[in-house]
Amino acid sequence: MLVVVCVKQVPDTTQVQIDPVTNTLIREGVPFIVNPYDTHAVEQALRFKDRFGCRVAAISMGPPNAEATLRKALAQGVDRAVLLSDRTFGGADTLATSKVLAAAIEKLAQEEEVGVVICGKQTIDGDTAQVGPGIATRLNFSQLTLVDRVDELDLSGKKIRVSRKLEGRHEHVEAPLPVLLTVVRELNRPRYPTVAMRLESADAQVEVWDNKVLQLDVNTIGLKGSPTWVSRIFSPERAKGEMLGDGVHDPEGAAQLLIDKMLEKDLLAL
């Protein structure tokens, strides 16, 4: 059985700024990281591998430099990495993204039966949490979102039991395989690659699949296949704070000042 993890390369959001003129993200010089939720997805896939000996493939749709993201997954121990990269995939919204990813999973399934697909709960840049469910729907897989614990994977009975983390409660659910999971951070602690695995992954093969491989109708993917458009993107205005007092040299004075301010703004009642 093959487990497929979807990983996305995202800009390090602590460093992203929005260009006030063009209203787009300034990606210039911003380092990319693996979408944090996806590292937990990779870890879960590797735990299935450790436990059941199944193989793990990581896939990512993105520009050629997204290869680094896949290399990291290889260093952690996935067996195969496929980068879905083609000009025609560019500018995709969640609908078009899930279409490409689903097609890639189907292609992988031609070689080996796919039992589980794992995605992050959402990304830290797009933040929609739609891609996972989109893939599941297209592939007609069971869909378990917000998974924070896997209780049992029963390969012979072809079912899975998990706990889902919802607002203020947990839900214990069971679903037949094949299944798509989207996972939250509480699920596990991602492993740190050993040096041997890093060196190993440095020259491991990352396969690149373009649309010649997937053979999708170009009108259904990328910008052309995306019914949603971003009309404007902006940072909410936030009044810049000012420094008052000197908390180090005169902590009492600073505290007094703070209390006065809070009283003045009616944030504190005497």
């Binding site: 602590t14 460093q15 990281i33 602690r189 740190y192 690659p193 040096v195 041997a196």
Partner: peptide, 22 residues
Amino acid sequence: LVETESRFPEELLNLFENMEQR
């Protein structure tokens, strides 16, 4: 422990990632 076993106190994972990424 770190390089061969990848075993270290939990808090260090964040540190290592922060150092590598930022």
